[in-house]
């Protein structure tokens, strides 16, 4: 990061390669709107570039980057005056659970459920499981989804996630706890209560 702050293009390219996918996944999963996610995706890195002189080397870069993405996301959602949806998860796992047709610009994320080499029956089960997971995640408040994404998919520790969403580590753990309970309850209600 120090080299990038000094204007080193190769240093930026390395950071970009490392976090390009993580930021994209975070935005798409939080927004559920691929078009808006793509707009914000570029803006995250532009904002990172503009803010780089203020980066504190004492803080983990990854946390700082997700903070930028989270703040940008919050601003965008506030400006749109709508509650963030998780329809992308619906599209991700098959798309027909509640609204029928898949959005034409939706990113097909069906393959993001690990089902490589599975039989057709197993693939169907996985698909149904994905739809149930979609519904479960859609039922979560935004901060709980953020905590789950950052903790489970990105592997951030709770104190760092707390920095991202502006809460204490204890409050973040509470969010994670509630989110996991809700996910489980939703899966049970939809008949997917067994072990994955």
């Amino acid at each position: 990061m120090a080299a990038y702050q000094a204007g080193n293009e190769a240093a930026f390219a390395e950071l970009f390669d490392r976090y390009a996918g993580a930021i994209y996944g975070f935005l798409v999963r939080r927004l559920g709107d691929p078009a808006l996610a793509e707009d914000l995706y570029q803006e995250v890195f532009l904002r990172l570039h503009r803010a780089r002189p203020s980066y504190d080397p004492g803080r983990p870069f990854r946390t700082w980057l997700f903070s930028i993405a989270h703040n940008l996301l919050s601003d965008a959602l506030r400006s749109r005056r709508r509650t963030p949806s998780l329809t992308q998860f619906q599209e991700e796992f098959g798309g027909a659970a509640t609204s029928g047709d898949k959005a034409p610009n939706a990113v097909n994320l069906g393959a993001t459920i690990a089902s490589d080499g599975a039989s057709p029956e197993a693939a169907l089960v996985t698909r149904e499981l994905g739809e149930a997971l979609n519904r479960a995640l859609r039922s979560l408040p935004p901060d709980e989804v953020t905590v789950l994404i950052l903790a489970r998919l990105e592997g951030l520790p709770y104190d760092e996630i707390g920095h991202v969403i502006g809460r204490s580590a204890a409050a973040t753990k509470q969010l994670a706890y509630r989110a996991l309970k809700r996910v489980r309850a939703e899966l049970v209600a939809s008949g997917h209560g067994g072990e994955p």
Binding site: Q42, V107, T112, L180, L187
Partner: peptide
């Protein structure tokens, strides 16, 4: 159980055009 289930979700990658456009912009 919930934690394990979330592990099944794989990372996403941005479309190559978006990736290159963003990299080029910065």
């Amino acid at each position: 159980s919930s934690w394990e289930l979330l592990r099944l979700v794989r990372p996403l990658e941005p479309p190559p055009a978006l990736r290159e456009r963003t990299r080029g912009a910065v």
